[in-house]
């Protein structure tokens, strides 16, 4: 079977019909479930200071937490640092539920990549460390299906069923099954954190 035959076969399946009254009633039924206008989140002026205070406070706690983690890491080089501290990662995820796309640590510090909306689906957390041939390194905790930037290029991080990790970009492919294979000019290490987060 070629692709075209498969497409035709897939398209041959009809949608089970619904009565006309269903299509007539459905919009009205949904409309009755919509929140009242006052409940819709709007960027109202009076709310902004309160929001910025709460987010500011949360970020200050985060920075403090990371600072302590990093300091402890430096004091005890054998211990795990920053992003390998599962507790810190868990706390970040709890602070921004369904919004954390990635937590990235590079030479400039730690950055959070958050979604505008709480719509990041729950998926396998993945720890990634990548170093370029120029010596630029970063570590990230992200989630299967999310993207990271490698030299400005979007690269997707995926967890396989057997716990392996794949790094897929337009010009690169790396898998934890062959960890020593260089992807472009990057050396990568990655593993899932599923059992520990």
């Amino acid at each position: 079977m070629n692709d075209s035959e498969l497409n035709n076969l897939l398209k041959s399946v009809p949608m089970p019909p619904r009565p006309e009254s269903y299509w007539k009633d459905f919009p009205g039924r949904v409309a009755t479930l919509l929140p009242r206008p006052s409940k819709i989140r709007r960027p109202a002026a009076w709310r902004l200071p309160r929001l910025s205070w709460s987010y500011g406070f949360a970020l200050a706690c985060l920075i403090f937490g990371f600072g302590v983690g990093l300091w402890q890491g430096r004091s005890h080089p054998d211990q795990m640092t920053g992003l390998e501290d599962k507790k810190v990662v868990r706390e970040v995820m709890a602070l921004f539920p369904n919004r954390v796309q990635a937590i990235i640590q590079d030479e400039k510090g730690i950055h959070l990549v958050l979604s505008d909306q709480p719509n990041v689906p729950a998926s396998t957390p993945i720890w990634v460390r990548a170093c370029s041939s120029h010596g630029n390194c970063f570590t990230a905790v992200t989630f299967s299906g999310q993207q990271l930037q490698f030299d400005g290029q979007p690269v997707e991080i995926l967890a396989g069923r057997n716990g392996n990790v794949m790094v897929v970009g337009t010009r690169m492919f790396w898998t934890s099954e062959e960890p020593d294979r260089a992807a472009e000019h990057w050396r990568i290490r990655a593993r899932t954190l599923n059992d520990t987060l």
Binding site: Q147, V155, V168, T170
Partner: peptide, 9 residues
Amino acid sequence: GCSETTVSW
């Protein structure tokens, strides 16, 4: 919300 390569794959 992913790359074209991922969709192709």
